[in-house]
Nucleic acid binder design. Structure first.
Lengths: 152, 152
DNA sequence: TTATTTTAAGACAAAAGAGTCTTATTAACT
DNA sequence: AGTTAATAAGACTCTTTTGTCTTAAAATAA
């Protein structure tokens, strides 16, 4: 898999948050219900994003999590980096450690090019952009549910 | 990871075979030694490639495995498909089953485009092409060894 | 025929990823 | 103060991937 399950869940939750603006904290329980993700698992993932400063959390009644910045300032690459690390940006296609210009593997040149196009895609796509598109066209965010399910 | 370890090992071994032409069978033990891959693990992987018709094997003394076709007729996509399956060509970036034009996720369009560039890269790169380049420039195929290590 | 060299097959073990559960801790409301 | 609603933290389990080991089968050569 390109992205780990944790990363995918983190992205889905981030899109949820971006679809709602970030004035209010949104409870993780609500998100896990709507997104059909295990509550405890999602909690752990969002704790990572909180630790990385992408989310901020608030305990107690009316608590939850929200984005620390407006979603149009958050490329999805930020979420990917926070959860899966930089492997996507640096990993050798043949799994060789430190594969680079100096000590390349035979696939290095072609793969570096392809990898850059992945990188650019993730860097040039913001949460808000996807959330907007998702809302307008009621696109999918769960196995059988669209963005409309995220709203009351 | 983009490719599984099994797939990476399968690719490295295939490049080994392609560097040697396919007149002779090459023992798996020799490949596993040179490529620094566990013999039994590599054996299992190459059995998959044999089952898929990419390799043919021969038991007993002077036995081993070899490519069934000239390496310039084998795009590395064949190896990837045989070991990791078609997930690379079809998987949704947000992990939604059956994500496609009909029921897309918000990332679908952009991801499909990026995914195609990965696909094309793997389809347009042959074993021989990489093996030739690897031999000529003595590129890396193990943690610290180049193509020269593959030869006696 | 017997010993040797090789792949084939499958049981087993270790490590990593994914998911669950329990117990704090914090904040709001009554 | 006490109850309730929420996140934080960490132990624990399940599953998949990765890797090891043993035995069988096939081919060669003495």
């Amino acid at each position: 898999m390109l992205l780990s399950k944790s990363c995918i869940y983190g992205l889905r939750a981030s899109l949820y948050l971006a679809s709602h603006g970030n004035e209010n904290y949104i409870p993780i329980r609500k998100m896990s219900d709507r997104l059909e993700i295990s509550f405890h698992f999602l909690t752990k993932i969002l704790q990572q994003l909180t630790a990385e400063g992408i989310l901020e959390s608030f305990k107690g009644p009316n608590g939850g999590v929200r984005l620390t910045k407006p979603g149009d300032q958050i490329p999805i690459m930020e979420i990917v980096l926070a959860i899966d690390g930089h492997y996507l940006l640096t990993e050798c296609a043949l799994g060789l450690p430190g594969c680079g210009i100096k000590k390349p593997c035979p696939l290095h040149d072609k793969w570096a090019e392809t990898r850059d196009s992945i990188k650019e895609m993730f860097e040039n796509t913001t949460l808000t952009e996807l959330a907007k598109k998702g809302k307008e066209e009621n696109l999918r965010l769960t196995e059988d549910g669209g963005f409309d399910l995220l709203f009351d």
